[in-house]
Design a protein around this nucleic acid. Structure first.
Lengths: 128, 128, 128, 128
DNA sequence: GTGGTCTAGACCACT
DNA sequence: GTGGTCTAGACCACG
């Protein structure tokens, strides 16, 4: 369900949060769906329960998860909405990126083509 | 010459490296140009010399700076080429970003327009 | 008879206790009235019998309920008195709250008006 | 600087957060002021560094603290504003409280007097 | 020195 | 069983 890269510089709990958001966005997880328990996910991923807990707490705080003590964690009703709003804010990142690549000599047409193929999901463009 | 945000989460030495790269890219700094000494830049920016040193070392390691013992630091011949290659690699970041925003409901036309205006440097689009 | 919010952070058994106290205070339940059996309430509210039992035990301990083995649970004679005393103690909570809101810049007149309208049950003041 | 009740049911880290907010609100801590380091406060209060860290993280998240890795934690510029807004929201708590006390038989005049004396800081009313 | 993350293992209240 | 808190001790990057 989750893929953790222990060698990455981005914290494990943050990787979990990010992947969780994408799962919700993609529709694989829907409002009300139960999440694996802290302990079971801990055993599954070979990650300390505290780390899972930290990720779940963060998701709860963001309104993506509802954690109900004694019962479990569930995808919140507001989840999709919250994540959508957050990612909309990434447009400033995109602007920054485009400016950098322009400085590095990228042509406008080149960038537009890149965006188009990424949007249409052409795998051959996504190296690495 | 440099603008450092001490409160930012991104390390000071990394801010220096990034800005240095952009200065080279923009043509303000050319191969062979001398860099300010660690000490003078330290006094200028009110930053610990160790931090300046770390930035210079990193730039040296990347082939953007040539450190000449006893004489100072100079922009390397390979600088432009190295930075160009690095930023080319950012195309995968852009792809990732576009995919995320698509998932979040952004339209293709919307994204293309965003890229165009960012490329042409229209300030009014860059909110925040 | 009871309204339980399973997603709330406040324990289910505590919700039961609180609502029970209010029912007594409001006069809907009087000393000697029989309470629904653990089993029937469990089926009614779709709540684990253990949880109902815990609420009843707590109410018994507080002198609000009399548990008569083999016959059932009844509202205790001392119920109203006990609850009154308990809520009187809330005056310290109110004091604390007023102090906090004063620190946050609330005006005295503002607070008094709030209390008045809450007391008189004006719905339009109780946003959210 | 802080007073922790280890026996309280409210988590230690939450006690820290609450007291920190009151210190800012009361003006004892102002924007830009440095906070004690995680380790020193840990030694001072005989509390595990992780717990202090958790409190500081929460305050950072709320915009009350700025934590600068390698330098320390400082009171954020937005601190007062954030806390003020939060406490304003407590008016619904006050409404709830007043309704409860009305049910318990409190007179309106009684409540108004209570609020007045709490606001004016008469110590003799604040038992406990 | 600083903050931040992670692990290991414990305890608690709730269902 | 569940989530939540806390301690102890370790490691990392940063200044």
């Amino acid at each position: 369900m989750f893929q953790i890269d222990a060698l990455s510089r981005v914290p494990v709990y943050e990787q979990l949060v990010d992947q969780m958001e994408k799962l919700v966005l993609s529709g694989l997880l829907k409002a009300g769906d139960p999440m694996p328990s802290v302990r079971s996910l801990s055993l599954d991923l070979l990650i300390n329960p505290n780390t899972i807990q930290k990720a779940y707490s963060e998701l709860d705080r963001r309104g993506i998860l509802m954690s109900v003590p004694g019962k479990g964690c569930f995808v919140a009703e507001t989840a999709t909405e919250v994540i959508r709003k957050k990612i909309r804010d990434k447009s400033s990142d995109l602007i920054e990126l485009v400016k950098d690549m322009k400085l590095a000599g990228a042509e406008l047409e080149e960038l537009l083509a890149l965006v188009r193929s990424a949007y249409e999901g052409n795998k051959e463009v996504c190296e690495r």
